[in-house]
Amino acid sequence: MIEIRNLRKAFNGKKILDGLNLDIEQSKITVIIGRSGEGKSVLIKHIIGLLKPDSGSIKLDGLDITTLKERELNEVRKRFGMLFQSGALFDSMNVADNVGFALKEHTGLQDDDIAKIVREKLTRVGLKGVERMATDELSGGMKKRVGLARAIVMDPEIVLFDEPTTGLDPIMSDSIADLVLDTQKALNTTYVLITHDIPFTYKIADKIAMLHEGKIIATGTVTEMKESTDPVVRQFLEGRAQGPITVY
């Protein structure tokens, strides 16, 4: 259970998160939606302690991670897996070393066993025979999937995915949705996902939270959100340029 209370963050005087509250339930799939530049990535980086808020708290099972020291934070982070929006693959390593990195650093597993797990996770995201490829030989969607495999390689309790399906074809998107649903069922994983992919959201979300102007303005199940009367939520889910949110 992650409780985010009154989170505020400004960059150079510009308020990005402005008193944000959100509960993320254990073993559930929470999807955060919101317009580009609203601060979704900033929010998810706070959850794993990469950014420190100006004020507010983030409690993970009662422990406020915003006050932790680097060393304590590193322990907590071993419970997490994260996919960056940019992928953030290590460009000095090949695909297999990227995916197997955390295993190598944190477990005493033999290279053979690591290779086996790596192969299994890569297959899970629809990649085969790419182990020895350099990261710059991959297509955008392949990079994303290597990032996904890297994020789940340790079977983490909590997985943060920043736009897992951006750049993937619809079939692959759907198979990532299955991956999320399967692991959530099999391992009781808690998922926090950011996405603009509405069909993907509808397929997997236990709870949708909409970020708008620094706050979570609406939360609910897929059905609740679909039936929402909030004009901002409606406009976003229906993808209309006309409405309370203006493009300029």
Binding site: G49, R77, F80, F84, H106
Partner: peptide, 11 residues
């Protein structure tokens, strides 16, 4: 390219 952040997130 956030690779340093990625290291941090892996503990």
């Amino acid at each position: 390219t956030e690779q340093i952040d990625a290291l941090s997130t892996m503990g």
